[in-house]
């Protein structure tokens, strides 16, 4: 009976202690559960606020970085390494160098100093120097085109001003339409190139240069040249006619001077005949007196004397 009582007591004591500990454990878990929930919900807003602030800060940081990058690039390009200016200087130097080379090659070609400068006679391939010279020609062509355009514009402006003034004033007399230029036929032979270069980059330049030779200005130049030639011929004819007249009188006087009747007269009269009109009249009057005397003395020369007197 004592053993049974002791066993019952020990079981009861153990049960009581185990129940107490379990209750405490459950209580602790409940406390922790509630606190964790409360803490998480309380921290959530702070966390969200901190994250939002971080995002905003990151946004402004990124914008500032972009602005700084743009400024740094602008500053370097403007003050330290001006690429555009360097490029312009480089191109200008290259152009000047090429122009110097072309000038020198042109000079050498004129003086025939270098045998390899000129290309072969019947070949279609141009040497490098020939190509550079073609570029040189185009350079002159460019300037020539500019001057041509300027002249054309000024001429148009003059025509427009003339047309504007024609409302009040008209040129008199009217010179009439210009028929000389209507039937002008263009010579097509000049357009055809005898040898077309293989390099197509220069063929256009050469063709344009050839066509520029057939411009209206050149046509007018040709017409002016023809007119000048015609005028020269007309002047020559007029001069020859005038020359013939003077020769006839001189011839007549020379023949009269050879007559035998002048032997008795002194030589002074002979030299002064041509100087003035009075001397000539004096000469003819003296000749008349002599012939009248000579007419009576010689009868076989009557025909000759009459013809001479009638002619004078």
């Amino acid at each position: 009976m004592f053993i049974a009582a002791r066993r019952i007591q020990s079981f009861w004591r153990g049960y009581r202690v185990r129940k107490l500990l379990h209750l405490r454990w459950q209580s602790a878990i409940a406390i922790q559960r509630w606190w964790r929930g409360f803490r998480t919900r309380h921290i959530l807003y702070e966390k969200v606020e901190r994250r939002l602030q971080g995002i905003i800060h990151e946004h402004f940081h990124r914008a500032a970085i972009r602005i700084q990058a743009l400024f740094r690039g602008w500053w370097v390009r403007k003050f330290i390494h001006d690429v555009r200016n360097l490029h312009r200087m480089q191109c200008t130097a290259a152009e000047d160098l090429i122009n110097c080379i072309i000038h020198e090659m042109h000079h050498i070609k004129k003086t025939d100093s270098i045998p390899g400068v000129i290309s072969l006679r019947n070949s279609v391939c141009r040497s490098k120097v020939e190509k550079l010279l073609t570029t040189m020609i185009f350079r002159f062509h460019n300037g020539r085109v500019l001057s041509m355009v300027a002249n054309r514009m000024s001429q148009k402006e003059e025509y427009r001003r003339h047309f504007r003034d024609a409302r009040f004033v008209t040129h008199i007399p009217y010179s009439g339409p210009n028929f000389d230029g209507l039937c002008y036929v263009r010579e097509d032979d000049h357009i055809v190139l005898k040898e077309v270069p293989t390099d197509l980059r220069y063929s256009e330049i050469v063709t344009e240069y050839e066509e520029s030779q057939l411009h209206e200005h050149l046509r007018e130049t040709h017409l002016r040249f023809d007119l000048r030639k015609l005028q020269r011929q007309i002047d020559h004819i007029n001069y020859q006619e005038l020359h013939l007249k003077r020769k006839f009188c001189a011839d007549v006087i020379d023949r009269m001077r050879k007559w035998t009747i002048w032997d008795s007269i002194s030589a002074n009269h002979k030299q002064n005949i041509y100087e003035s009109r009075k001397n000539t009249q004096v000469f003819f009057r003296r000749a008349e007196h002599l012939m009248s005397d000579f007419y009576v003395s010689k009868a076989e020369d009557s025909y000759h004397v009459l013809s001479l007197s009638s002619s004078t």
């Binding site: 405490r24 209580s27 602790a28 878990i29 406390i31 922790q32 606190w35 964790r36 803490r39």
Partner: peptide, 18 residues
């Protein structure tokens, strides 16, 4: 001591905050 030793243990920082 209860909250850091028994149950589903909490850290010292959490208990300080509590």
């Amino acid at each position: 001591r209860i909250l850091t030793k028994t149950g589903e243990c909490m850290g010292s920082m959490e208990v300080d905050e509590l």
